[in-house]
């Protein structure tokens, strides 16, 4: 058994929500700069220039890169040999997020319930937490701040097996086209294929948590990722929808076994911000 102090977890979560809103990992800067360099549309170039320059300013001044500082999503992969000290994990994560959003002057965008009063909780929680048990004696938290310009344009549907690879291609490209400028392109596209409807949605979200440019281990899916990226960048939507060749920065697929009768398919879009980080305890 390994003991993990939840005070430390809370502290690290607090730091993480600020970092993901202020700082851009090198791999993302490299990809954004490449998009700026390869963009041939003049308006698309202007958008990419502002995007790249904004990252520099946000990181230098430690301010949020976007006013929509998102809803926080956490994947908690808990080693079976882990024991927690000082409370429970959900409370530690929630409290870390609340403190981080307060101290970091991040916008609070969460409402108590979705339909009637939509009153703001004023602390940017609750957090959407996905707990999973894994072998080992470590805790891994993957923490994301998800903007809803892109979340709003995401969905799950179930294709018939006969629709196959071409059906998936058609639907993924259509998702990006329908989102158009509203998802703040250049987007990152998370695709979940297989399982059940909720499993597909989780796979798509997990895909968004991968690092920029990391391909699926399975060569067939890696190839499909590349093909999809090409198809999406042929739509002409471009940065911010202002026209151009860089509509998506990356396409990532995660798959899972499924039933003989279906291809569950989820498309989860993320804006160019890609605010997430993984922490090991």
């Amino acid at each position: 058994m390994t003991t993990i102090n939840l005070k430390e977890v809370e502290h690290k979560v607090n730091e993480a929500v600020k970092t993901i809103n202020f700082d851009t990992p090198d791999a993302n800067i490299i990809r954004l700069t490449e998009a700026l360099r390869t963009e041939s549309s003049a308006t698309g170039q202007l958008a990419m220039q502002d995007i790249v320059e904004n990252r520099r300013i946000a990181s230098e001044r430690q301010v949020p890169m976007c006013q929509d500082t998102g809803m926080v999503i956490v994947f908690a992969d808990i080693g079976e040999e882990v024991q927690f000290l000082n409370g429970n994990l959900r409370d530690a994560i929630t409290s870390g997020v609340q403190k981080g959003y307060q101290e970091g002057y991040l916008r609070k965008s969460i409402v108590v319930e979705p339909l009637f009063e939509r009153k703001n909780t004023n602390n940017n929680t609750p957090v959407v937490i996905h707990f999973d048990l894994v072998p080992g004696n470590k805790l891994r938290l993957t923490i994301a701040a998800k903007g809803f310009g892109a979340e709003n344009m995401s969905w799950v549907k179930v294709l018939a097996p006969a629709e196959g690879i071409n059906g998936v291609k058609r639907e993924v490209v259509r998702a990006v086209e329908e989102a158009g400028p509203n998802a703040c392109p250049p987007v990152v596209v998370g695709v979940g294929i297989g399982g059940t409807i909720e499993k597909a949605a989780l796979l798509a979200k997990r895909a968004l948590m991968r690092n920029m440019g990391d391909r699926n281990q399975d060569q067939r899916y890696a190839k499909l990722e590349a093909q999809l990226l090409d198809l999406i960048n042929a739509t002409g939507i471009g940065p911010q929808g202002w026209g151009g060749m860089n509509t998506a920065l990356d396409v990532r697929i995660e798959f899972f076994p499924t039933h003989i009768a279906a291809i569950p398919l989820a498309v989860n879009l993320d804006c160019h911000l890609q605010r997430h980080i993984s922490i090991m305890f």
Binding site: I51, N54, I57, M65, C66
Partner: peptide, 13 residues
């Protein structure tokens, strides 16, 4: 008019 979504730190200046 449009301005860049996700360029808020720059815009605020």
């Amino acid at each position: 008019f449009v301005t860049v979504g996700g360029a808020a730190a720059l815009i605020s200046q």
